[in-house]
Design a protein around this nucleic acid. Sequence first.
DNA 1: GTCTATACCTTGATAGAC
DNA 2: GTCTATCAAGGTATAGAC
Lengths: 201, 201
Amino acid sequence: MAKKPHPAPGQGETVRREIVEAANRLFYHRGYNQTSFTDIAEAAGIPRGNFYYYFRSKDDILGAVIDARIERIRAMLAEWDAAEPDPRLRLKRFAQMIRGSEKDLLRYGCPMGSLNIELGKAQPALKARAKKMFDLFIDWLARQLAALGQADASRLALQAMGRVQGVAVMTQVYGDREFMRAQLAEFDAWIESLPAQGPAK
Amino acid sequence: MAKKPHPAPGQGETVRREIVEAANRLFYHRGYNQTSFTDIAEAAGIPRGNFYYYFRSKDDILGAVIDARIERIRAMLAEWDAAEPDPRLRLKRFAQMIRGSEKDLLRYGCPMGSLNIELGKAQPALKARAKKMFDLFIDWLARQLAALGQADASRLALQAMGRVQGVAVMTQVYGDREFMRAQLAEFDAWIESLPAQGPAK
DNA sequence: GTCTATACCTTGATAGAC
DNA sequence: GTCTATCAAGGTATAGAC
């Protein structure tokens, strides 16, 4: 349920959400440090000074944005888990989700990767919060790989995420959608190549 | 030899180089947009206003930084080519160079990747210049792979660079040097796995 | 050629009227 | 609860004294 914001939940709750939503988009499209309060205010349709009723600082907004992203990721992973019992097919959904973001990836890169890279350079406190988005995926990937009987599932999960991140970087740098598609096809092939031997069951 | 700066080459040339060197470090360590003129002036040991004698704008400094990096990359690749005729061993030097940057990669990520990602979001003109650093490596990688008889050398070069970029991202996000070393070992293994069949010779 | 002083704008943040 | 007016600080860039 996340930490409670200082405005009492009730009236301003929808305004707060709109601010977070606008900030979320802008942080992704321009980067955190390159997004100003003015930008967010315009996008959210509220006056500039009105911010500090909902958030006490810019970092605070980023925190809310990260929390919102985390909630969304959590919900998505839970949905995959609920809808699909086969870990291999779950992994394929992961690849499919990336395909669905093709357009954004070409323009803005990976929202998790680019944010972590930006914050990792000189804002370690914020970067630590942003890392949690990765943790969710890594843990989930490791669970699926473990369910497929992979021994070093955690390391393999890191490796798989690294592969995806590499594709995201090259995709943004070269704007090459064909490359991206080919790489994701190889990723699918890798998933299929994993031996099917669940441990318990 | 790059474009001539407006100060006549001669006296201020070493000052100019010092500015570029300081900016180069700072752009890498903090990011381009997060680096101010004040930062650069302090690092270079010159007064703030003195900049505009050497550069007409901040973008102009970035241009000079990119040019300097390109020159350095070019020299490095030429050195590898001169010192080592075997394309396979050249590729190993590439991997070795990355190992040598371990400490910086953990803290700041890849200097080319992070800069391209930052500029790619909303500064397309600058990003286009930064991309040229990648072009050098991609072309060089493609040449080595072609020399090894690889059919789709260009695509394979992109893939190899993507792999490295993915490792760089995950390395910075998780600060895991063991992961990085293991991934580079796999990269070495991949190089060795390439069949040895030069076309001409 | 080198440096000081400063203009002008935008930033994140606050105070207080409504 | 909502918004206007404004702040101090820091940003890039310029003018002009030495």
